[in-house]
Design a protein around this nucleic acid. Sequence first.
DNA 1: ATTTTGTACTTTGTATACAGAGAGAATACT
DNA 2: AGTATTCTCTCTGTATACAAAGTACAAAAT
Lengths: 229, 229
Amino acid sequence: MNTMILQPSVESKPIREIAYETLKKAIITGEIPAGTRIVETDYADRMHISRTPLREALRKLERDGLVEYVLRRGVVVRAFTIADVNEIYTIRNSLEMLILPHIIENATPADIAELRQMLAELDVLDAAGDVEKLSPAARNFHSRLASISGQRRILRVIEGQDEYIRRFSAVAIAKENRRAAAHQEHHLLVDYVEKKDLESFTALMEKHIERSKETCLLALKETKLAQNG
Amino acid sequence: MNTMILQPSVESKPIREIAYETLKKAIITGEIPAGTRIVETDYADRMHISRTPLREALRKLERDGLVEYVLRRGVVVRAFTIADVNEIYTIRNSLEMLILPHIIENATPADIAELRQMLAELDVLDAAGDVEKLSPAARNFHSRLASISGQRRILRVIEGQDEYIRRFSAVAIAKENRRAAAHQEHHLLVDYVEKKDLESFTALMEKHIERSKETCLLALKETKLAQNG
DNA sequence: ATTTTGTACTTTGTATACAGAGAGAATACT
DNA sequence: AGTATTCTCTCTGTATACAAAGTACAAAAT
């Protein structure tokens, strides 16, 4: 990563936002590995911005827990452990279970239609084997489904936690065997919502999350092996 | 709030940290009411600091969801709704339930002793009717209890959410009738941990949280009434 | 009277300057 | 040679400068 390209945004977002998003993505994808010290002047130069917006971006990443601040030494990219993944999925599962009844309750035909539309797009990506686009699309689907519950704070916590493991879940969804199963499960989930079958919905969602976790843990272990080897 | 006193810290924390903590406290306590626009030069002058560390503090508050950023208009202090409180307590209860088994499992005699020590201090404050100190002390007790579980992320989410409602729960603990009951419940909670009686522990904690929520909602409604009237 | 437009003033967004703390290298001393 | 010490250089922490966007208000035009 010698040069870091800032995503030029259509609407004029402040540079600090673009820097924040760019760095966040780079950390989440592993492009900037854990343990990397982020020297401000260095990264400001690479991104062709001044230190001021970069520092503001770093403060946000600090709040996100993606980087760690050491007094008078600046920030360092933080690492992940298996315990982290376990906890994140515990949180995810627990909170997701809470909102499922609300989803069933609130789902309108329009919501269902929109979900089906998203599924159709997932079908195409899945058939084409486009794992690059599949991962964010699948996350999008889950996000939309959860948003029907109207529980904004809970949603925010779930998504906040999910961000940490995005890099592994991206790998997870790409795995051939898991991919097909997950895809089918997505369809089933919408079916259950439509039928307002809370019991089946809950049971499937729990399994779905559990399987996602297993694949994610696998991806993490592979990453760790690759780093140490 | 004409002048805003920065808490002078013993160890040399960066000014931005002090600014962050000061503002956070002021927002949480309601000293800076929801809807207030925070003009950077204004607040920087009041706090006798430059805009740079103030802005970095604002970026953190933004990530916390305590203030809202509007393009080219700066930040505004965000408001709370009853739905917010409900969701926060839903999250809190759900996650707390998750860690209770871990608490029972991990609690050492040393942990119990420390909790009892904290209870003794709470006894004193309660007897003295020192509601100012009682509220943070009670929060501290809960925090210490939860930390025994070793589930750091979950703890972080719980505490992160709790921060939003601190101003109301502070009022909640101060209410005479609730105070006595809560105090007794704290003692019982430790008893159950010591006896490793998960069932009673769980049942009581759930009730404890539920009651806390009710009182908190009451406090919020009073605040709203006071604002509108 | 109402709308438009021009202008001065605020305030944000970004860059840059500068001081001081630490880390590491080079030198002196035992 | 090994350790202490000083010096230098690299960074962070903070302040300040400056440009551009937005706002408010008054004067002019309809």
